[in-house]
Computed example of a mutant assay.
Amino acid sequence: MTTDRIGSDAVRFLVAGGLNTALTSAVYFAGLTVLSSGISYTIAWLVGLAFVMVFYPDRVFPGGRTGFADRLAVGGSVAAVFVAGLASLHFLERVLQSRAAAFFATLAITTMLNFLVSRWILRRQY
């Protein structure tokens, strides 16, 4: 793996993450017009998860693995990182004594973890 490929993967990952954030935010706020916040959040999160499973193998890590099992593995890893992020958020809130600092630290941690694990799953050799 060259650093050029890692860098281009990272740029595509960040762009796709921005698109995913915009999409899930739109779904969340649209849902709030007729649903509770919890249901809206759940639907938005599931839409985001589907986006990752459909979009990332072909567009973010092109030339990598694109099989159904690989897509499920990426979805599972994103779900696992979400749970790890919740744990990190609660831990960092206590340690840092700042919700904002804990949020941004958790965002950095989960973004890096999602990139590394997704890349490993989709770029590993057959």
Results as ranks from 00 to 15, higher is better:
R123N: 08
L35Q: 03
L46V: 09
F103M: 13
V117Y: 05
R99C: 00
A69C: 00
F103Y: 14
T3L: 15
V74W: 03
Y41N: 10
G7W: 15
L122N: 06
S40N: 01
Y28H: 08
A16Q: 05
P62W: 08
V60S: 02
L72R: 02
F82Q: 10
D4Q: 15
A22R: 08
S88N: 12
T42D: 01
F51D: 00
A108I: 10
L86F: 12
A73Y: 07
A26L: 14
L14R: 05
L49W: 10
M112S: 15
N20G: 14
V60F: 04
G67I: 01
Q97K: 12
P57H: 01
A30G: 11
V54I: 15
T66N: 06
V117K: 04
V78Q: 13
L116Y: 12
Y56D: 08
L116F: 14
L107M: 12
A100F: 15
G64F: 07
A84T: 07
A101Y: 10
G18F: 04
D9N: 11
M53N: 05
A79C: 09
L72D: 02
F115D: 03
G48N: 05
L113C: 08
L32Y: 00
N20A: 13
V83D: 01
V60E: 02
V15D: 00
F29C: 02
L72S: 02
F68R: 12
W45H: 10
Q97E: 15
R5Q: 15
M1W: 15
T111K: 04
T21Q: 09
V117S: 08
F68Y: 09
Y56N: 05
L116I: 11
G75K: 00
V60T: 07
V60W: 02
G38W: 11
I109M: 13
L107E: 09
I121P: 06
V81Q: 06
A108R: 01
